[in-house]
């Protein structure tokens, strides 16, 4: 399933930037990057840049501002991929 695949890919990226006190098992679709996963804003930028490379898309400042949870990120990835095709 495509959605599940994207979610797994995104989780692989997030995993790299998780602080030591947060495990990958704690990542869910509802997880808030900064408040729940303790990812700082600098690492959130790195996640976005990795997302761009992995999915071959380009995010704008507005996308970044909307990207608060894992679900938000998936929605933005969806939207960008649709616009590409």
């Amino acid at each position: 399933m495509q959605d599940e695949q994207r979610y797994q890919k995104l989780k692989e990226i997030i995993k790299i930037y998780l602080p030591e006190d947060v495990s990958v098992e704690q990542v869910g679709q509802e997880s808030h990057f900064i408040e729940e996963l303790n990812i700082n804003s600098a690492n959130l930028v790195d996640i976005v840049l990795d997302v761009e490379d992995t999915f071959d898309i380009m995010l704008e400042n507005e996308d970044m501002e909307q990207m608060q949870t894992v679900q938000d990120a998936l929605a933005i990835i969806d939207k960008k991929l649709q616009h590409k095709n």
Binding site: S41, V48, M64
Partner: peptide
């Protein structure tokens, strides 16, 4: 510069 994006 490596990159300057999203204020980083």
């Amino acid at each position: 510069k490596i990159y300057f994006r999203f204020h980083k």
